[in-house]
Design a protein around this nucleic acid. Structure first.
Lengths: 224, 224
DNA sequence: GCGATCACTGAACATTCGTTTAGTCTACTA
DNA sequence: TAGTAGACTAAACGAATGTTCAGTGATCGC
């Protein structure tokens, strides 16, 4: 295990940026915040990376390089361990955050992940392990979303389930349930009546959690 | 169909804010942008809502009121239509965006959606329609994520599948595939060997899509 | 007609933002 | 040992941010 101080200064800055961009988003994170996290001056960041955008590109590059590296070890893993390391989780979260903010690079990257997932599923379908589907692209996309999307909603998921999916324990619990769903689905029969669908949005909302008086302003009009 | 000009000015401002906050996020959206969208001066927004935060609370309240209203019509829908209206989609996207930005209100709201989904699933499990599960909370959370999470990743999904999940057609295609997964899962046998899991992250990444020179800065050092 | 009220705006406010500049300190090289 | 290069910072820059303020014009009750 390397400690933060073992890293070069640019790498320390980049890691601080990755964490902040991943949790708070690009626009909501200031250069000064990253500088403070990394223990350097704001000017040094621009000295090394040219601009805030340049820093983001360095983050993109680091994410790509990391997965490029781990991709080389794919299929050679000796363990049954599917767990994500803390480092990979930070990078995946950054990637998904960037995609949610519609970064062209991140969108293409996620699309590639979906593509490779589709290919993996197709290969196993040919071998008979995986069911064929009417829409392989969409199925692969949804499976990637199911696995990586929750990284951006850890707060809501924790409130609902008590599990923090950003920790190893919570992630394990999530993966178990994902596998359960992918094994048998959720219906007892393959062709259920979906009319009474549990996702009908109308029945979704309960009591208002907020401290706000909400729409009242729209009727009382202004405040002067 | 009402047009924008039929709405009161505060409502028009609020709708512009909902759209912008939902697509770009709260921090990345300026009061001036919303004012321009709504065709008013920035000062008027603060006249009606007090602050940018007050405007967000009004958005929260509107989202809550909308679903509170449609919840009253739950189970009474005469059609088999599970489609989301454009308005509901905008509001759901706003809600998920807020949750992804860790808004306490949105997190609680999404947690409530998960809770009600869990209750719906439990009731149907008792009737024998839905399989029991070892982790009802997590399953409900994942189903909600599967359905609503993609609203924040429409760009990546479109790049991978060609379907824009923010339109009725794309959404229909997504829902069909979700139902397919929930009917039978993806495995041909209920207890597959998950060691060779299609989600293993190592095999995920292909060629770099970016125009960036990436990590090179970290080794060449600075730019001066 | 008159005062009050309220929707609404232009201009300015203070703060924060990303960025630039000038300069210090350290380390290596000739 | 003089000189150069690069890591690094304090201070300031202009632009953008959220917000305030003074004021205009219309509407309404009296």
């Amino acid at each position: 295990m390397r400690s933060d101080s073992d890293l070069s200064t640019p790498a320390r800055i980049r890691d601080a940026a990755l964490a902040r961009f991943g949790t708070d988003g690009f626009a909501a994170t200031s250069v000064r915040t990253i500088a403070s996290d990394a223990g350097v001056s704001p000017a040094l960041i621009l000295h090394h990376f040219g601009s805030k955008d340049g820093l983001r590109e360095a983050c993109d590059g680091h994410v790509f390089a990391f997965f490029q590296r781990t991709a080389g070890r794919a299929g050679q893993s000796q363990t049954r361990e599917h767990m994500i390391t803390d480092e990979a989780m930070t990078l995946l979260r950054y990637l998904m955050r960037q995609a949610s903010e519609d970064s062209a690079w991140a969108n293409t990257m996620v699309a590639q992940v979906i593509e490779m997932t589709k290919e993996g599923l197709a290969a196993r379908t040919e071998r008979g392990d995986i069911r064929p589907t009417a829409d392989p692209d969409m199925r692969a996309a949804l499976l990637v979303m199911l696995r990586l999307g929750p990284l951006l909603f850890s707060g809501a998921i924790e409130r609902a389930t008590g599990a923090d999916v950003l920790t190893a324990d919570g992630l394990q619990r999530m993966y178990s349930t994902i596998l359960e769903i992918l094994r048998t689905g959720i219906y007892t029969v393959p062709h259920p009546d979906v009319e009474e669908d549990p996702f009908e949005l109308g029945r979704y909302l309960g009591s208002d959690p907020g401290p706000t008086d909400h729409d009242s302003r729209l009727t009382t009009g202004g405040r002067n």
